[in-house]
Write a protein that binds this DNA or RNA. Sequence first.
DNA 1: ACCTGAACACCGTTCAAGT
DNA 2: ACCTGAACACCGTTCAAGT
Lengths: 230, 230
Amino acid sequence: MATKTRRAERREEALSKESIVHAAIALLDVEGEGGLTFRGLAERLSTGAGAIYWHVANKDELLVAATGVVVSGVTVSDGCDASPRETIRALAIGLFDAIDAHPWVGTQLAGAPWPSAMLSIFERIGRALQALDVPRAAQFSAATTLVNYILGAGSQNAANGAYARVHLSATNRHEFLSAIASTWLGLDADEYAFTRTMAGPLVDHDDRVEFLAGIELILAGISAKQGPRR
Amino acid sequence: MATKTRRAERREEALSKESIVHAAIALLDVEGEGGLTFRGLAERLSTGAGAIYWHVANKDELLVAATGVVVSGVTVSDGCDASPRETIRALAIGLFDAIDAHPWVGTQLAGAPWPSAMLSIFERIGRALQALDVPRAAQFSAATTLVNYILGAGSQNAANGAYARVHLSATNRHEFLSAIASTWLGLDADEYAFTRTMAGPLVDHDDRVEFLAGIELILAGISAKQGPRR
DNA sequence: ACCTGAACACCGTTCAAGT
DNA sequence: ACCTGAACACCGTTCAAGT
């Protein structure tokens, strides 16, 4: 049994940017967006708050680096024989799941310029589009539309999940969606005729399926713009 | 000439949630995301920081209310004889411009459940989809995809703009994009073959045009899924 | 009912002093 | 070179006390 003294014991491994970033990720995952503090991080690393600043310029750099690590994790899975469409779907759902598992990544990716790891995903999507014979002039639009949708839908989904976990005593997802659906059904029948019909689909929908349906819509649009045949 | 004493002078109009929210919007617009503080708000309103809490529960409620006001402003413009596609385009670009003008709205909309004002936009988009004869079963996907894309692309654009304004001595947009394009061109030629070809389009692109191209892609996908004729 | 402003428990960041 | 921890200038929020 490892004995722990009240005073911070010596670290075994030296402090490094890498170890700090990993501790930051753990803290963000456990405590949520606002859980990352230099004092909390220092305690976790058994050091003083100021020590972190020797390895990291400031909190923003820490957040960018942490986001980069998570996004890099998405990039690895790669089937060589996958079709271009399958590649895009895999990248999209990979990013979606990563953001769902680390909601703070969604906030970071949606609200700031891309960390360099996003470029790798952009590159893979672009190559898949080239393989689909998307004309040069349409590639930029197609690639940025896909990435913007992925990031937007991903953060939205993660934010809803985080909100449900924090603000709701209602434990499960179904209760959360039902609560929203109820408010929709309580809206004015004329003014919100459409929204009210969506209460049913809202309760029944599957987040990942719906997300992928959006990807499919964009892919269909990309093909449709290329003329009737191919 | 209005004489101003050093001490806070009496307010003419009573404090109210509405006046507080408007002051908050002004503060956010001028100072940016982090510029909203209760102390700053109190000074602007010539009152004590604690007074605000009589009208508003906390900072989050303030942010939600402020976002709601901006989003509500988008809802108003409405041409009765516009086609469904034109309606969707108008709503999309309206939201895009609102987020561009108030970048903190993008952060708020991307990172939290919708404020009630978003429902009004969702409703209008849904009605336009119904007018396009999108089948019932496809309406939920189509509407959420559009909204997620609008919010994602809007926040991304606004974040880039805010970043350029804050972090760059480079004053104009072109210098900002050129700087990014340079880093893209400096990437490994094999590993980032696609990204490098996008450096040109990146520098030349128009944000609003590109955003609308994405909307068009999604609309084309929605039509394509409905079978060949119509 | 509404406002005041000091007080509390935090933050990020800096920096003299240590090793 | 790297770490420590007190100190500084802030935060959001609360609350006794005023009007």
